[in-house]
Design a binder for these strands. Sequence first.
DNA 1: CATGAATGAGGTTTCATTCAT
DNA 2: TATGAATGAAACCTCATTCAT
Lengths: 194, 194, 194, 194
Amino acid sequence: MIIYRTKDRILYEALKLFSSKGIKETTIRDIAKAVGITEGAIYRHFKSKDEIVERLFSHYSEELYEVLNGALEEGEDFKGRFKNLVGSFLEYILKNPDVFRYLDIVHLLGKAQMENSDKLPMKAVYRLIEEGIREGYIREDVKYASAILVGTIDRIFMYKTMGILEDELELIKERTFSILWGCLVECRKGEDPA
Amino acid sequence: MIIYRTKDRILYEALKLFSSKGIKETTIRDIAKAVGITEGAIYRHFKSKDEIVERLFSHYSEELYEVLNGALEEGEDFKGRFKNLVGSFLEYILKNPDVFRYLDIVHLLGKAQMENSDKLPMKAVYRLIEEGIREGYIREDVKYASAILVGTIDRIFMYKTMGILEDELELIKERTFSILWGCLVECRKGEDPA
Amino acid sequence: MIIYRTKDRILYEALKLFSSKGIKETTIRDIAKAVGITEGAIYRHFKSKDEIVERLFSHYSEELYEVLNGALEEGEDFKGRFKNLVGSFLEYILKNPDVFRYLDIVHLLGKAQMENSDKLPMKAVYRLIEEGIREGYIREDVKYASAILVGTIDRIFMYKTMGILEDELELIKERTFSILWGCLVECRKGEDPA
Amino acid sequence: MIIYRTKDRILYEALKLFSSKGIKETTIRDIAKAVGITEGAIYRHFKSKDEIVERLFSHYSEELYEVLNGALEEGEDFKGRFKNLVGSFLEYILKNPDVFRYLDIVHLLGKAQMENSDKLPMKAVYRLIEEGIREGYIREDVKYASAILVGTIDRIFMYKTMGILEDELELIKERTFSILWGCLVECRKGEDPA
DNA sequence: CATGAATGAGGTTTCATTCAT
DNA sequence: TATGAATGAAACCTCATTCAT
């Protein structure tokens, strides 16, 4: 993918640097050098470093949301939607590891300004789980259920990007879905609803 | 708990600040002010800010490892050990949220120098899961199984400390154990080993 | 001489300050103030104070070498070359006392990184003396001969810059040459070669 | 030589450190560590670092003066006194290289407060040369003559301590005397007094 | 006499941001 | 739009000196 507009190249390089070194650890100069321009030029495109940080967060947070939301819309039944979401989630973050690492960093440092947004990835996950509960597939509390789903995916992402887990993407998607589906739906079937 | 030695007070305040603002975002002056001494005095106790970062990491990484390891040693059977570990894990991190947040930050920024240590929390988790697999309780691959276990706990910690999850500690321990045990052990009982 | 480029002004002022107060005793702020810029601006031109120290040393060490070497190339016979070198040496250091004092300071504090350079002033002096020995003018061992030559010049520089010696430059050149030539060449003429 | 009094041990270690690293580059802590006491203890013996610097300078400056002066008093005739002074000078500084390097550093940095002292090494050299001139041995101006004498000795010290000159002490004394005597006295014998 | 924690001033360096060109 | 020198605030760190013990 070739990015032509300077503004987009700045965002692209900033994302890579932020996610690999940290936000504070990345200087405007680092970004400028990566883009191939000088420090001053950055300020033609962004008012401040913080604006870059925020723009990146809202852009990618929304992009991931759209991906997850799209996954929900394409599935025919609940199982299909569930599988779609888990697969799309893994596919997106493993193909865009910088994005996910960056979102994590922003969260961890409490820099996320998300109050004003409806398009948070978490919302899509919640929607899926709430549907599952409403329709009797999932018996778990929504918070615990999403903790299992997102936590597991997050950890698998970590193992894969750290080189600990070596399975290929499709296999990872398959196994993760089967685990999560088994865990949240299948094995609770016979239980009394709490 | 009252800490008397300046050196320990420095570590104590640094941990709080690092975990709430980030490492780079916390200045030596912040730490000094929190402790009630001047910046220069810090350097009588630590050669550099990095030394504080490292000392905190190795100290608490090891402490958490000991907690998990202790949990493994006290359980009578596998189920007991499993329950112990999950409970101790949650109890420790929810009572010491700064520690867990700090360990996460160090990991995320890739500052961990852990090559030379055997006492990483992860090792204790692996040991439990490997035992479970060896003895037929767990059918999942060790990496996927630990991803579920640690990922779920991590996420529940996040929800609890963010105020999203309001259950009390004992209830959280109970529910988390029951979910994880069900997920990793119970509901796979009838399956054919892969 | 008016210096326009900031980088050169920094070097120029640093040399004056280093040579009058010492290197460690001169702060970046001193230099910046002398140049008329702020401390931070220095670092656009030099990575560190050490870089300034080294650049000054290698620049002036080489410049003095070129002066002495040039003197050697212009003389017609040995006596002419000898006179040229002594004269140029004195002229250069008395007109650039900061340079010579600076080179002395660097040597005395052992900061000179000269391994990789062939253009050390000493080399030119050695070349002259070795020629004198080869051609029978000088009977003294090369080390003792250069000790006399350089030591005497060094001391005369010191006396002149301290105000102890009041002769004018041309007279100093004349007398110093006559002393050194008499000492190293004339008065040994009748001796048996050792 | 074993030094028992703490005060003298401080001076002894300070001299070594100052002469090898420089004065500003040597910290009170360095000195304390070398002596085997703590920083605070230094201040029991000296009011300040400057006091150490000054005490060392006046002590060793005077000691070298006494050595040279003693040499002048022991010679029977002028030649003997000349030889004595050159030999004692070389012997003292080559056996106490730290002292001479230290005196040089103090001079170079302009820290010497010597106005109030009559016991400067230079004075002894001047006395010898003035006698030589008065009695017709030396025809050179006193400043040029002392420049030759002290400059040459200084340079030979430098070559010897840097390992460039490998002759043993007695040979160095012999050759240096013979050069300087030849240069300042012998070879001018037949000349017309200027 | 000695310790060693603490101070406080000041040093080097970094960096987001501005601005003349 | 872009450059790159400059600013100014603030970061980390050093160190002579003081002081309670």
